[in-house]
């Protein structure tokens, strides 16, 4: 009988010890806590003999329930975006981001922005840096005319013939070589 009593005491102290550490600070634990000498606030007892026994377990704590509180604005700002926000027009963009222009829609070809409002121009590096391919995605309209214009522009700026590959169904053009900045500047000049 005595051993059973001792083991029960040990179990209770183990519980107290766990709560005293309060590992993740969660108040869920509080519902299982005890009132009286044993408090929610962490308290480490130096040994088993000094630690008090469980008196009463408090099941429920008192709460004020406030409907539509003024603090709800603080909650709302934490919630994720429904969709990616549309950029409001500003006077200048210090980061170097350039907004698309209206008149680009009237061109026979069009490169639409990504949903992150960036130009879909990417560099693919393969064969350990031996092959670099610039890819222009999300092309609409006359892709062949865009290809001709782009090729002429690249020949002018790079000073040599540049190979391209047109994928009509995939709506992209691949350019052999790293021409990301050249093409990005060209796209900005067209207003895409």
């Amino acid at each position: 009988m005595a051993t059973v009593w001792r083991s029960q005491c040990a179990f209770a102290r183990l519980l107290i010890g766990k709560i005293a550490q309060n590992p993740n600070n969660s108040p869920d634990l509080c519902t299982k806590l005890f009132q009286g000498p044993i408090s929610v606030t962490s308290r480490n007892y130096s040994n088993y003999a000094n630690s008090p026994f469980i008196e009463r377990i408090k099941e429920q704590y008192e709460y004020d329930i406030i409907k539509n509180p003024p603090e709800w604005a603080y909650v709302e700002r934490l919630l994720p975006f429904d969709t990616i926000p549309v950029v409001t027009p500003k006077e200048n963009y210090p980061s170097g981001w350039i907004p698309p222009r209206e008149e680009a829609v009237h061109l026979p070809y069009f490169v639409s922005r990504t949903k992150n409002h960036e130009l879909p121009i990417y560099l693919n590096i393969t064969y350990r840096g031996m092959r670099k391919i610039t890819k222009i995605k999300k092309i609409e309209g006359d892709i062949w005319l865009l290809n001709d214009t782009l090729k002429a522009h690249l020949k002018e700026t790079a000073g040599k013939y540049v190979e391209t590959r047109v994928h009509e169904l995939g709506k992209f053009i691949e350019v052999k070589g790293d021409y990301v900045n050249v093409i990005r500047n060209w796209a900005h000049s067209k207003g895409f």
């Binding site: 108040p27 929610v40 606030t41 704590y61 406030i66 409907k67 709800w72 909650v75």
Partner: peptide, 22 residues
């Protein structure tokens, strides 16, 4: 100590002395 209820748009604030102290 506050509990945010997203569904009912309400906030539960503790009034219990022990919790407030904690």
């Amino acid at each position: 100590g506050w509990v945010v209820n997203l569904k009912d748009k309400c906030i539960l604030k503790p009034t219990d002395k022990e919790l407030l102290r904690f």
